[in-house]
């Protein structure tokens, strides 16, 4: 009995040792030289592997950083400035500073504002629905509501609100990797500058139809009336194709445009209630 155990142990150890030796030599033979800094840079990265930098995962980004020898075109949106300065420190390079960004969904066409005019009955993804037709409402630019953005988010930062039928971004979780921006076939999601206290002002509409038509499809559509453009003292608003756009890099959060918009298409978020304002503007304040 005991002799059996001894034999077993001996045999197994022998096999183990032999394999270890073989593996060692194989590993030696196939070893490729890798810049040790790649590992260092990779360690400094958040390790989310989200692809937000435009590279296939953190390792690829680290390789790119080491290879390029210049960080001006490389930025990790997840780690942000802090992480990039760390990377720059390792490589002895200069990192560009970027304002932190956050994803914003530019559609406020809730079920209430934008009535359904058809029922989609196919595989429920936005990509399939949008390649088939314009969508369940009369607004061909608006949110389809099947949540491709939600599926694609690695950070659990975007959710469908079952009441409005629209996706909502959780600002604290959003790392601005841009996956949802890519996923949205209607190009509704934009990475906008992050302001203190998560405040934002933006045109929650992408409808490029003429005013009447846009309004007919959705009560809160931008009709391109350009009142906001005239109101803005900082040149942050431009109108193109019957649609207003607020450049978050120029916006100073003065909130003047919000009150002039006749359709409440401009949304302000996380501001204290106004003192002498009519109620309608408050009702558009979305708490995200």
């Amino acid at each position: 009995m005991s002799i059996t155990i001894v034999y077993t142990v001996i045999t197994l150890s022998a096999i183990g040792t032999l394999s270890a030796v073989v593996l060692y030599f194989v590993a030696q033979k196939f070893k490729v030289y890798e810049d040790p800094r790649i590992d260092q840079v990779e360690a400094a990265l958040p390790g989310a592997n989200c692809g937000g930098c435009g590279h296939a995962g953190c390792r690829a980004f680290a390789e790119a950083c080491v290879k390029e020898n210049d960080l001006s075109n490389l930025f990790c949106p997840v780690g942000g400035n802090e992480c990039m300065s760390g990377v720059a420190g390792i490589l002895g390079l200069e990192a560009v500073k970027k304002d932190p960004r956050v994803a914003v969904v530019r559609c406020n066409g809730t079920c209430e504002y934008r009535p359904k005019t058809s029922n989609f009955d196919g595989a429920t993804t936005c990509a399939i629905a949008s390649s088939l037709y314009s969508g369940e409402t009369d607004c061909q630019y608006g949110c389809l509501g099947f949540g491709d953005c939600v599926v694609v988010c690695d950070f659990d930062a975007i959710h469908m609100n079952p009441v409005t039928g629209l996706p909502e971004v959780i600002d604290e979780k959003c790392v601005a990797c841009g996956a949802c921006v890519e996923a949205c076939p209607k190009m509704l999601i934009e990475l906008r500058k992050k302001f203190p206290k998560e405040r934002k002002i933006y045109v929650a509409c992408r409808n490029e139809d003429k005013g009447g038509q846009a309004r007919k499809a959705c009560q809160v559509a931008c009709i391109g009336c350009s009142k906001c453009e005239k109101e803005c003292a900082y040149d942050a608003i431009t109108i193109a194709n019957n649609l207003a756009f607020i450049d978050s890099d120029k916006c100073k959060l003065c909130r003047k445009c919000v009150s002039v918009c006749p359709t409440n298409a401009i949304i302000e978020v996380n501001f204290p209630p106004r003192k002498i304002q009519k109620e309608t503007t408050e009702s558009t304040t979305v708490n995200q």
Binding site: S118, N119, D121, G122, L132, E136
Partner: peptide, 8 residues
């Protein structure tokens, strides 16, 4: 009241 739309 609303038509159904689905792919073929």
């Amino acid at each position: 009241n609303v038509l159904t739309i689905s792919p073929s």
